[in-house]
Design a protein around this nucleic acid. Sequence first.
DNA 1: AAAAATTGCGTAAGCGCTTGCAATAAAGAT
DNA 2: ATCTTTATTGCAAGCGCTTACGCAATTTTT
Lengths: 341, 341
Amino acid sequence: MKPSLQDIADRVGVSTATVSRALNDRGGVNAATRERILQMAQEMGYVPNAAAKGLATSRTYTLGVITYQRPPQQPISNFPDETIQGIDQEARERGYHLMTTFVNADMMQDTVHIPLIGERRVDGLILIGPALTAAFIIRLYSSGIPIVLVDNMLSETNIDAVVCDNVGGTYAVTKHLIDVHGLSKLAFFSGPADWFSSRERRGAYTQALAEIGQTPRVIYMQDTTMDMGYTAMQEAREQFPDLEGVVAVNDATAFGAIRACKEHGCSVPEDIAVVGFDNVGWAAMHDPPLTTVRMFRHETGIQAVRHLIDTIERGSPAGFQLRLGTEQIIRKSCGCTVADH
Amino acid sequence: MKPSLQDIADRVGVSTATVSRALNDRGGVNAATRERILQMAQEMGYVPNAAAKGLATSRTYTLGVITYQRPPQQPISNFPDETIQGIDQEARERGYHLMTTFVNADMMQDTVHIPLIGERRVDGLILIGPALTAAFIIRLYSSGIPIVLVDNMLSETNIDAVVCDNVGGTYAVTKHLIDVHGLSKLAFFSGPADWFSSRERRGAYTQALAEIGQTPRVIYMQDTTMDMGYTAMQEAREQFPDLEGVVAVNDATAFGAIRACKEHGCSVPEDIAVVGFDNVGWAAMHDPPLTTVRMFRHETGIQAVRHLIDTIERGSPAGFQLRLGTEQIIRKSCGCTVADH
DNA sequence: AAAAATTGCGTAAGCGCTTGCAATAAAGAT
DNA sequence: ATCTTTATTGCAAGCGCTTACGCAATTTTT
């Protein structure tokens, strides 16, 4: 049987209160007794019982991580594993655990109950990605639990968020197409109009086009998957026969777009240049290597946790918004010729 | 404030014991009162407190999921997201939650303590992948907590496991190279010698070669990443100038292998055929599309959870081993010419 | 040297839920 | 009509830990 506080108390000859104080560094414990207690706890292999501690303190030292689950198996997974690894790492360092959940459209319905919160299993929540609906987020938020959004932002609210510089990234890469490759008939493949990152990136693209007096050509997709990019490209080529290039909202759609080109005897970047956003692992391996915008996912995860725990423990005021920089990654799909990735 | 059992009890005019019994369908409660209690609970939006319930019952309804975290960012992520989604889905359906943790080599050391278990945060554990060391697994196992391995097996023990048919899959694909493409100078790119799936797949490859009187040519890698496959291919070409084909232990290494070929003016499959294992999303998109073995990850996750929960709740005897089938996916990297993926 | 402030520790009351046992009431058996 | 059963429900202890409060023993202050 696992030793309890009581067991230690008995062996040392003090009360559980003292043991608890000693183990939690609450102070008010004589240095010598404290030492004996720590010693004995170590010796007996004492580990506190999370449930009991949680009951007494109303703290779980657990963070919930919610991500959107796309319906079927996609060739390129949009799963934010790197972000989650960052989250996991930082959480562990701060003594927190992670409870992960995937949600799909059905589960974001108003009627379904989120046990993570109701049952008080987590101290805070990290919501990843722009695919989580505003209604869902607001519902979680209004439960009063600390929340931080990742790669998403709800403009009407001031829910804490950490995002990347969508605007700067997309603007730079669009400008690159315009300035260094002299292209101007550019289309943008956007995710759903109300998705945060799509909105920002679309805005930057529009801005860049406006500066050279071009009207934007936006193709909206229902989701930012490779398949959608494929379809979007077909649509774009029909709709804009003079198309010179595509700024895709992310790498997955860029891959799909390129694939559509290839299969219809149009080559990238010669006939149509394509750039993405995200710099997923495959971008460098792809044929052609994908010009894209790098975001720092691991760091994003770390920052999100860092802030979340701060607000849990110190009750930081809401309205926190962190914007991590991006980096333009020039490869070949834009028309550049670079030696290596 | 959230309503507690007591609150409901007060409103209905019964004791908390009765409310508890009614809510948990323990029986021994008058149908009418039961109805009133359920009604009231619903009305007050009652949700049980997980910590309190856990303290009282020693059950958390939480499953731990442990995966191996590779050191840096790899171009192709080996992250078992699909498996985990299967796990998540099945766990949710059975009313369980998931606590995920990544471990790296350091964290598998004997000295580091696994809070998930010590603090009694989980009822059972799912350990994914062959990269978790035997010592680590045994340590967890000997804590007495129910465990099921995924894509791994410890032959000396009889720890429950669900794996795919490594032998059948690799044998089939090796045979394919031999029989339909007439190749016989085949190498195998293996992960560390003691990794379960590497061992099984290597065995199948060896067997297939033995049947045509060829001695096996195995290249061992420290990990099954794309980079390692790249290096392995260089090594293989030096060591075996007459090399005709490669059976890679998984898709990631196959991609690396193919890349190495490409970069050294050797084409796949014309000069060297390459086949993988896993059928990751990218396999179909790759150039050339990768011939590989499909495994059913989602299903694997589901089965693992199903069994784990069964042993948690019904104490099924240990020694469970489920082997899910595989499917040969013929594409072009083996030399076949198929219309589409 | 007495009064005041500290320090160190135990007592005990929870935290919210489950459950063995006893108590009561209703129903069946003889 | 009396004795058993059986069905309902309440009592209260307990899960393992935290923490407000109080008391004694020290130490500090004047």
